[in-house]
Design a protein around this nucleic acid. Structure first.
Length: 271
DNA sequence: AAATCTCCCTGTAGGC
DNA sequence: TGCCTACAGGGAGATT
């Protein structure tokens, strides 16, 4: 499932084929994604030069001189680079075709992703404007979490998965970071000390950086821009391990549902 | 304002 | 073997 590391991996993989390149056209075979692909987007993108390719949260941002495109991978999305157009198979919903003939092809079986555009400043787009801090920047620290949690009364796991607080921490990495920080996922976010939030910040940053280094986590669909899976799945310590022994203390890993999401933790290591 | 619920979609796994 | 159901989940938008 694409979380921050998977999106980062994808962006780095397709950057050489998009940045500085001219978009010849976008071909949409399936327009009914999370939001429909607008016909205006197709005409807007044609002929544009890509000034920069970057990640913001879990969005891939394709910047033009004025405005740009946003791609979200949803939960089953992936993007690949093809040297030239070849026939698409099922679930390959759209292609960005550059003037050099390279094909940036989007696949998303569950259609939870999207392709959006804006003719004005891209960071003002409604999807980006309300996003919280980037977890791998200095703005993400214990003070930020403590202050944000003060008026909240939710489980800490839901708190760190709130994109208005911090972006990019999805279900898998939330469980993993809380285990590494020794914090129980159901702990009320308002009751966590600044010192413990400091440990959580470090844990989130470490788990995300390790996952980026491993090319992300592939459980089902995720592949990078050349079609390879990520290898962080083998480094998961609690996610998907309910009933198995904790790798640290040996007690049984538990599973609980928080906010409709499966949550894994060690009841002895996490308090 | 914050918390909770609902929904979008389809492949896969498990039960019978 | 084949059918059926439950489940996976990011996140917006409605509701409480």
């Amino acid at each position: 499932m694409p979380e921050l590391p998977e999106v980062e991996t994808t962006v780095n993989g397709i950057r050489p084929f998009l940045e500085g390149e001219v978009i010849d056209r976008i071909v949409a075979r399936e327009t009914q994604l999370r939001w429909p692909i607008s016909p205006d987007l197709l005409t807007f993108a044609a002929g544009q030069t890509v000034r920069a390719l970057r990640r913001r949260g879990k969005y891939i941002v394709i910047e033009f001189a004025h405005g740009g495109l946003l791609i979200h991978l949803g939960m089953s999305g992936s993007v690949r680079v093809l040297p030239h157009p070849i026939s698409a198979i099922r679930h390959e919903h759209f292609d960005i075709i550059t003037a050099r003939g390279r094909v940036i092809r989007y696949r998303d079986p569950r259609k939870f992703g999207c392709l959006l555009h804006t003719p004005t400043a891209i960071d003002d787009h409604p999807r980006l404007r309300t996003l919280g801090v980037e977890p791998l920047t200095a703005a993400f620290d214990a003070a930020w979490l403590s202050r944000g949690a003060r008026a909240r009364r939710i489980a800490v796991k839901m708190f760190i998965m709130d994109a208005k607080v911090v972006v990019g921490v999805g279900n898998i990495y939330a469980s993993e970071a809380l285990f590494r920080a020794g914090i129980h996922p159901q702990c009320n976010c308002a009751n966590i000390t600044s010192v413990r939030y400091g440990r959580l910040v470090t844990a989130i940053q470490q788990v995300l950086q390790q996952a980026i280094a491993e090319g992300g986590t592939t459980l089902q669909d995720f592949v990078n821009s050349v079609g390879e899976p990520g290898y962080f799945a083998r480094a998961l310590k609690v996610y998907g391990r309910a009933g198995e022994p904790c790798l640290h203390c040996g007690s049984v890993i538990k599973k609980v549902v928080l906010g409709q999401r499966s949550t894994f933790y060690c009841g002895r290591c996490q308090r």
